[in-house]
Design a protein around this nucleic acid. Structure first.
Length: 555
DNA sequence: AGGGTTTGCCAC
DNA sequence: AAACGTGGCAAACCCT
């Protein structure tokens, strides 16, 4: 599929017997028809779903599957150690023809709730003018299939490309539907904690009061937003500190400390998720009973993190603080279905390393409790030991615990230790499906000079964590893809509305909650089987039906 | 005035 | 308890 920038486009069936080029005046209508007319929906090949699919979704069209050449190109380049090279259709095509490779188009930063651009607006393919875009796309697609087939494990990369592409679909759909967000509840939370909303640019009353009390406690004017001024203030009152981080201040016994900590907490809320955020990111619409309903529309970036986790552009969707989650509430007559994969990373390590003892613990609902029994300590210490093994922590409490871990879970520890050694030596490691770690640019020079040994160890911690985090990220991608397939037909706006690393939230009519919960369970089973076959490791999702997000959030 | 860097905290 | 992985983001800071 190629769009013409005016709502239409060109289609051509690929495969053993390629069909003719079809010019269609209404791309959305043609896609909708194809999704229904064929015995099985097609796998759409397109050059950047990020540009195309949001427009289709806005036009009311959803597709079952796709092959996104930009996302796939980035995976294949990364596999070859070429992270960061341009991955657009124009770039891939130029490399095939030995031509100068254009940079990828720069995407605008998050646009908040501003009006969306016109249908199928931008041609960001970066192909030279006059190039037959459909032919170029087919050529790049062919080439990608060949490169995948030539890999040592083609099936894994084929799966990774498929779920990365499906992630692109899910991201656009979630961004469109949005997370149900009550502006009135958010405003109540802010007013409770900060006082009434101040005029723009002014501090809310509670913060202004704290500034006064902080200055009084110190004996001179202090702007608590300025780390430099706070450092000077602490020295002035006889408690010099090396930084103003809250865990450093917490250890200081002086009356100004509680005031500073309270100020930090509240000013963070005001700056990051205050009234300005609410205006920018939550689109309001009238609801029943005169209430105002809202939607938070994150702009997800699939594969935006080296490990394959998603990022977001603007709005901070992956860091919604616990204090405002009460504002996330299902519409009247609807419910939220929330499912998060508890202890995902140690379970992933158990599955990929094939460590029998760790897999036995990972067969349980509470992995850490089982670990504690095996380690002969308490749950908290077992958890610290496991995290230390995956993050490469060596100081503090971790050292003796690590020795125990090495003895009890030799294969699991060897798996991450080997990854760390590879990283320290400047090598690359790969996730279960083949996502590949980057080597920092200028590596040889960086490790040759002063601080080189520290750089090596840092890279070792990165690759150690990469093999686990990147595989956990693809577990989540497979889950999203499976869930998209297994969900029943639902009314407009219902479905997956939020995703953060190891957690999905669905917003559905209340009478569909049961069938959705079953779909989640089915998606987990399918994900486990597709990735790890008949492993004993479980990935408990424990889907919960609720009206309010906060009521089920830990902590 | 404007851009890049530093600091610190939020999430997983 | 505090230096152990991936990020986004805002305000202060520093320089041109």
């Amino acid at each position: 599929m190629v769009a013409d920038g005016e709502g239409g486009g060109w289609l051509r069936e690929l495969g053993p017997a390629p069909g003719p080029v079809r010019r269609v005046p209404d791309l959305a209508a043609a896609v909708r028809a194809a999704e229904h007319a064929w015995p099985e929906p097609p796998r759409w090949v397109w050059s950047a779903g990020e540009d195309l699919y949001p427009d289709l979704v806005r036009a009311g069209v959803r597709v079952a599957r796709c092959h996104d050449t930009a996302l796939t190109e980035a995976l294949l380049l990364g596999y070859d150690g070429r992270h960061g090279e341009a991955a657009s259709l124009g770039a891939a095509w130029a490399r095939l023809h030995g031509l100068p490779v254009p940079d990828d188009p720069v995407r605008p930063l998050g646009e908040g709730t501003a009006a969306q651009p016109a249908l199928f607006e931008a041609d960001r393919s970066t192909l030279p003018p006059g190039t037959d875009r459909l032919a170029a796309l087919a050529e790049v697609h062919d080439d990608q299939l060949r490169r995948i087939a030539a890999l040592p494990e083609p099936g894994r990369m084929r799966l990774l490309a498929a779920v990365e592409s499906a992630g692109g679909l899910a991201a656009a759909e979630m961004g469109h539907d949005g997370l149900p967000w009550r502006p009135d509840t958010h405003d109540e939370i802010l007013t409770e904690l900060l006082g009434p909303r101040p005029p723009a640019g002014r501090r809310p009353p509670v913060l202004a009061d704290l500034v006064t009390r902080i200055s009084e406690a110190v004996g001179r004017e202090v702007n608590p937003d300025s780390p430099a001024q706070v450092l000077r203030a602490m020295a002035w009152v006889g408690h010099p500190v090396e930084s103003t981080r809250s865990w450093v201040l917490e250890r200081v016994d002086h009356p100004v400390v509680p005031l500073l900590l309270r100020y930090k907490e509240l000013s963070r809320l005001h700056a990051a998720n205050g009234w300005a955020w609410l205006e920018t990111w939550v689109r309001r619409r009238p609801g029943p009973d005169g209430r105002t309903l809202g939607r938070f529309h994150p702009d997800y970036v699939v594969g935006g993190v080296v490990s394959g986790r998603w990022a977001t552009r603007g709005g901070g969707a992956l860091q919604i603080p616990r204090s405002v989650r009460r504002a996330v509430e299902a519409d009247p007559g609807w419910v939220l279905v929330r499912a998060d994969a508890g202890q995902l990373e140690p379970r992933v390590l158990a599955a990929v390393s094939g460590d029998g003892a760790l897999a036995a613990a990972a067969a349980e609902e509470d992995l850490y409790a089982r670990l504690a029994a095996q380690v002969g300590g308490d749950r908290q210490r077992a958890k610290i030991g496991m995290l230390a093994a995956m993050y490469g922590q060596t100081s503090g409490d971790a050292a003796p615990l690590l020795a125990t871990m090495r003895r009890l879970y030799p294969r699991a520890l060897e798996y991450v230790d080997a990854a760390a050694r590879t990283g320290e030596a400047g090598g690359v490691v790969r996730s279960w499906l083949g996502r590949t770690s980057p080597v920092p640019p200028g590596w040889e020079a960086a490790v040759a000079g002063a601080g080189g040994e520290r750089r090596r160890r840092a890279q070792g911690r990165f690759t150690r964590n990469f093999v686990v985090q990147a595989t956990a990220a693809e577990w989540a991608l497979v889950l999203l893809a499976a869930l998209r397939q297994l969900l029943p037909a639902m009314p407009e706006g219902a479905g997956i509305v939020f995703f953060v690393h190891d957690e999905v939230v669905l917003h559905v009519p209340a009478d569909m909650a049961d069938v959705v919960v079953r779909a989640v369970a089915g998606a987990e089973a399918r994900t486990r089987a597709v990735l790890f076959g008949d492993t004993p490791v479980r990935f408990p999702l424990a889907p919960v039906v609720t009206r309010n997000y906060a009521s089920l959030t830990n902590g």
